[in-house]
Every structure is written in C-alpha cells, then in structure tokens.
Computed example of a mutant assay.
Amino acid sequence: MIAYRAMVDVPREVVQYLARLLAAERRARGTRSGTRALTCFYQALLVLVWFRKGEDATLLGAGFGVSRATAYRYLAEGVTVLAEQAQDLHTPLRRVADDGWSYVILDGKLFDCDRLTETTLNVKQETIDAWYSGKHRDFGANIQAVMRPDGLPVWTSDAMPGHLHDLTCARQQGVTAALHWSAAELDLPALADSGYEGAGHGIKTPVKQPADGHRLDVDNRAFNRLLRGLRWQGERGFAILIGRWKALRHTTASPRRIGGIVAAALHLTHFEYKYLPGTC
C-alpha cells in the first residue's frame, strides 16, 4: 500500500467531543490505560473520517496503523456511543414547540444497502425479500424522521425492512402516536406526504384526486398547495444528513444497524448545528 497525506473537513471540536464520549465508554468498560492501539482522539478521528468520506474500513485501518478487524471494532464502538445519545421522540417534540415552531415535518427514506437473502411473507402470503422496496426498486432500510420547518432533523427512527410502507413503519415505531400527542398537547401538528394518508389526528396529508376522475374542489387544491409550500423545506432533513455524512449513502453492514448509524450521524449534525440538549 502507498500512504499519502489527507485532510477531513470536520471541526476539531467534533473530534474532541467524540473522544470524550469514547473515553467515558472505556472507563465504563474498565479498559486499562495503554492497552488500546489508538488513543480516544485518534479513534474519534477514525470514526469521523469514515462518516465524512465513507472510506473502506480496511484502507482506513491501514491509514491509522490498525488491522481491518480493529478498524471495524472501533467504528462500531464509535457508532454505538453516538447513537446512545438519542432521545425519546417526545423530548425533541417538546423542544421544537418551546423554540416557537408551529409544526414539524414527517418523512421517510430508504437507506441503500447490499442485497440480502432474508425473506418474509407479504399480505398475499407470498415469499418476498424483506429488505427490498418495490417502490424504490432497491434494497434498503426504511428510516422515519421528524424535521423542523427549516429542515433540521430532530429525530430519526430505528431501521425497518424496506418492503414496509412508510405509514406502517411510522405506526410500528410509535411515531404516529407521539405526533398525535404533540398535536393535542403541544399544538404542534405534523405535515406529511400522501404516503401517510390515514395516519390520524394531527398529521396533515394532501387530499388525493377523486377516484372518479373529477377535479379536486378549489378548497382542497388550495389546501394541497399550502401544504406543499410549508412542507418542502422541511423535507431537506435527509439531504442534510446524507450530504454531510457520505457513509449514509450506501452501507455494507447489516441493514438492522442502519438505524444506529443514522442516529449517530444525526447526533454529529446536532453538534455542528449547536443543537445538543442545553445549547441554544
């Protein structure tokens, strides 16, 4: 292999913050000083290089002077300590309301992963690929997210198999129940696309075209236009995450781990946006 100099465009404060989380994890595990191949700082740097650039773990490990197995172990540990900072959905909803926002955006996305052999039964009792989305014609994990009106994502869900519908995932993850609560208790409704039709109280979706081919009533057309005008910027949330953290664009890890990887990327994003708990 040939070594070369490289740089990663993340603030040093992010590396130091992650290093402190890793140091706390080592203390909790009882890791003795001097027994690790990398210090907490360089382990944090390794993790952030992977998130930012999506580097191959073997080459990344070689660049830091550790084996492929050690690189994977360090990456998994970094993802875990970041994902553990995630909060229950009710907490970020309260914060959005306290910050003066009048609504949130609900959206779902398929995060691309390698082809899998896991199968399941569909509603017709036919065997299908569990992680294949017929809508997107790709394999991946369905992740639900709640965004502020300006597009900043405030919460992401665990991974669900890609064959499931957005509304099914939102219900099984308890997202719809939390949004019903926020609409009723915080006066904070959620805006969503037509994939969430029938989600219930407080989750606003577009009015669909009549099945008989007639044009929508003018009031319904105005409602749909207003909804699109309010929702479009909030749907930038996934673009913020994927644009900043290249590792989210495709994963070779188990798709069940994608939820933790996205939650870790969300926490890094909150640090950079100064949106961690207790910050302004």
Rank of each mutant, 00 (worst) to 15 (best):
53 K>P: 00
53 K>I: 04
54 G>P: 10
55 E>K: 10
55 E>N: 07
57 A>Y: 09
57 A>N: 04
58 T>Q: 12
59 L>H: 09
62 A>D: 14
63 G>S: 09
63 G>I: 12
64 F>G: 02
64 F>H: 07
65 G>W: 07
66 V>D: 03
67 S>Y: 04
67 S>E: 03
68 R>F: 15
69 A>Y: 02
70 T>K: 03
70 T>C: 06
70 T>M: 09
72 Y>D: 14
72 Y>F: 15
74 Y>V: 04
74 Y>A: 05
75 L>N: 03
75 L>I: 12
75 L>M: 11
76 A>D: 13
77 E>I: 06
77 E>Y: 00
78 G>I: 08
80 T>P: 00
82 L>E: 01
82 L>P: 01
83 A>N: 03
83 A>W: 02
84 E>D: 13
84 E>P: 01
84 E>A: 12
85 Q>E: 13
86 A>L: 11
87 Q>L: 15
87 Q>A: 14
89 L>N: 02
90 H>M: 12
91 T>E: 15
92 P>D: 01
92 P>L: 04
92 P>M: 06
93 L>C: 06
93 L>V: 06
93 L>G: 00
95 R>W: 09
96 V>L: 08
98 D>V: 08
99 D>A: 15
99 D>M: 13
100 G>E: 13
101 W>P: 02
104 V>Y: 09
104 V>Q: 06
105 I>D: 12
110 L>H: 07
110 L>G: 14
110 L>N: 05
112 D>H: 11
112 D>A: 14
113 C>S: 15
114 D>P: 00
117 T>G: 05
117 T>Q: 13
118 E>S: 13
118 E>P: 03
119 T>F: 02
120 T>R: 12
121 L>W: 03
121 L>M: 01
121 L>E: 05
122 N>V: 02
122 N>G: 00
123 V>L: 10
124 K>W: 09
125 Q>Y: 04
127 T>E: 12
127 T>C: 03
128 I>D: 02
130 A>K: 09
130 A>L: 06
133 S>M: 08
134 G>W: 01
136 H>S: 13
138 D>I: 01
138 D>L: 06
138 D>C: 07
139 F>P: 00
139 F>D: 00
140 G>E: 08
142 N>W: 04
143 I>Q: 09
